[in-house]
Amino acid sequence: MKWLVYIAFIAISLAAPLVFPAYTQQFSALWVLIILAMTWDMQGGQMGYNSLGNIFFFGFGMYVSAVVQVSIAHDIGEYTYAGGINVFQFTDGQYFTGLVLGVAAAGILCALLAFPLGWILFGLRGPYFAIGTLGVAIAAGEMVGTWEWVGAGQGISMPPFPGNPDTAKFVLYIMNMITGMVCFAVIAWLYSTRFGLALNAIRDDEQKAEGMGLQTLWIKRVCWAVAAFFVGICGAIYGNTVGFIEPLEVAFQTIYLGIFMVVAVLLGGKGTLWGPVVGAIVFHTLKEVTWTHFLGWQWVALGVLIVVIVVYFQEGIMGWLQRQRPEWFGIRVESREPEAEAAT
């Protein structure tokens, strides 16, 4: 049964852009949200640390990959100079080498950066941690925004994908999909190990976890590094999908994706494996519909959605399912209410 779900999920993911090629970009954006939601839930759901700054790695990865991709062929300072009149071109070889190196560098550097950052931030708890991480993301956006070498507020136009636009979208979709699936597999595996239990122990009572001999600071940092790795890669691919990156609204977009990932997790169900995935799918669909059919009212619709989730539906979709149908999640229930028995 479990494997059937996985196979169906992979098949649908592969088939989606082939059956509805016009929507490939939307599916790509959906994967981005899924990856961000899954990695957010590692801290927010499983470990009990509500980070508002995961978007930092998204932007950092995006900029790392942009710098690598441009530098491979041109001087980045000249490329981004505001008054520049030179025309810059990339060969196919430069583009693809740049893309591979850029994405790899983004993932690795983000993961490495999570350690020193985590060393500072994981001393904070609760709302202090949330605001601390948010501060990192905002500060990073403002700093990159004044750094002329990477274009400051002008941003960077990414090298264009050589060839057919449909191929470009498909290639980037597949990159997103593979990142998402590997990310899911890694997370699912982590949750099945002692490491996953340690995360839950930290969430439930950090003092006790430490008292039992868990190296909590180390565990928290590893957890964040794993998330940062995937978020960085995801940001790098996203930069290439959008084609133009700039610090405040594309890279370190705290109030857009930075919040959407949290909403998606809350909607899908915090602290569950599938919750972030389901939440991201439902949220993305809702958003795409309301966003274009209530022009000008979309933010109101989003606000209402957040209020409804937080006030009436805290357990999320998967949390609700888990309560209604525990046997689907391998939870054995000794005695159930008679009418529920009759219904099944």
């Binding site: 090629p21 016009a22 929507y23 490939t24 970009q25 939307q26 954006a29 941003g155 979208k169 959008v242 084609g243 133009f244 700039e246 609204e249 594309v250 977009q253 857009y256 966003w291 274009t292 022009l295 000008g296 979309q298």
Partner: peptide
């Protein structure tokens, strides 16, 4: 479409308009 004054949304909507 309303791009909300953000480039990321603008690029997505251009894609949507065309594709």
């Amino acid at each position: 479409y309303d791009d909300e004054s953000t480039p990321a949304r603008g690029a997505q909507l251009a894609e949507r308009l065309i594709a």
